[in-house]
């Protein structure tokens, strides 16, 4: 038996919104420690990795590990039927899970709706992501990162990210001209959500597709801060941390011959 009850149902809506543009079908892997998902987009340029800890649910019950193969568009349609303040419970029979039951309860518990989502067999390869000591780790306000991606898309489909000790610089070059945004580290003790920090092993300069980065910023409502981790000749890691877990996006760089 699998059961996971989330008091903040809106969080599940936001999570789904941050994944569904990148991936259409995905396995939710359920175990006694929590729920996780790993999937690449069709072109294998980006990978999304989601992890939700069992402690974030109340209650959480999973007797044995199993996978829920879900069409995210279908799940999204059903999730639209949940109110933003609803408590959401996911239930499935772990021995023969051919459907996922979703229960939406409003705060006063007067209205309860129940939906069944048909599950599918998804044959997805699972990649092992190596532990990486990144050359540069940058924390910044997630809304700022979203704005930079949106702004620079006006100029080009690619962005070069340069990180030094003193600044992170985003540069775009296109047919109409060029644009760049530079951010310096700031520490605002009373407003930590607005601070920018740079941890640097060595300077790094990498080019990425703005279309994908912009897609990743759908995670913005999940966290005030976003973490960017860069290393030469490695995929960029973009992480949004939540109380209950995290969503990580990996983006393969644009590289020269």
């Amino acid at each position: 038996m699998f059961e996971a009850r989330l008091t903040q149902g809106a969080l599940l809506k936001r999570l789904l919104d941050s994944v569904k543009e990148l991936v259409t079908d995905a396995n939710f892997d359920c175990s006694e420690t929590g729920i996780s998902l790993q999937a690449m987009d069709n072109s294998h340029v980006a990978l999304v990795s989601l992890s939700l800890r069992a402690e974030g649910f109340n209650p959480y019950r999973c007797d044995r590990g199993f996978s829920l193969g879900v069409n995210l568009n279908s799940l999204n349609k059903i999730m639209k039927c949940a109110g933003n303040e609803d408590v959401i419970t996911l239930k499935a029979d772990d021995s023969s899970a051919d459907s996922l039951c979703l229960l939406f309860e409003n705060s006063s518990n007067e209205r309860v709706s129940e939906y069944e989502l048909k599950l599918m067999d998804i044959d997805q390869e699972h990649l092992s992501i190596p532990e990486t000591d990144y050359d540069a780790t940058v924390m910044m306000p997630s809304a700022e990162f979203q704005r930079i991606c949106r702004d620079l898309m006006v100029v080009s489909e690619s962005v070069t990210i340069d990180v030094s000790k003193d600044e992170i610089k985003f540069t775009a070059e296109g047919e109409l001209g060029t644009g760049n945004v530079k951010l310096k580290p700031t520490s605002t003790i009373d407003k930590p959500e607005e601070s920018i920090t740079i941890e640097l092993g060595q300077t790094v300069s990498l080019q990425f597709s703005l279309k994908y980065l912009s897609n990743f910023t759908r995670g913005t409502p999940l966290s005030d801060q976003v973490m960017l981790c860069l290393s030469d000749n490695m995929p960029l890691l973009v992480e949004y941390k939540m109380d209950i877990g995290y969503i990580r996006y990996y983006l393969a760089p644009k590289v020269g011959d």
Binding site: M40, S43, H44, V45, A46, L47, E125, H126, L127, S128, I129, P130, S156, E157, S158, Q207, S209, M234, P235, Y250, A252, P253, K254, V255, G256, D257
Partner: peptide, 14 residues
């Protein structure tokens, strides 16, 4: 812009 690489070039299958 430079050619796009893929995730498979960096992360291996389990």
């Amino acid at each position: 812009s430079l050619p796009q690489s893929t995730i498979d070039e960096f992360f291996s299958t389990n």
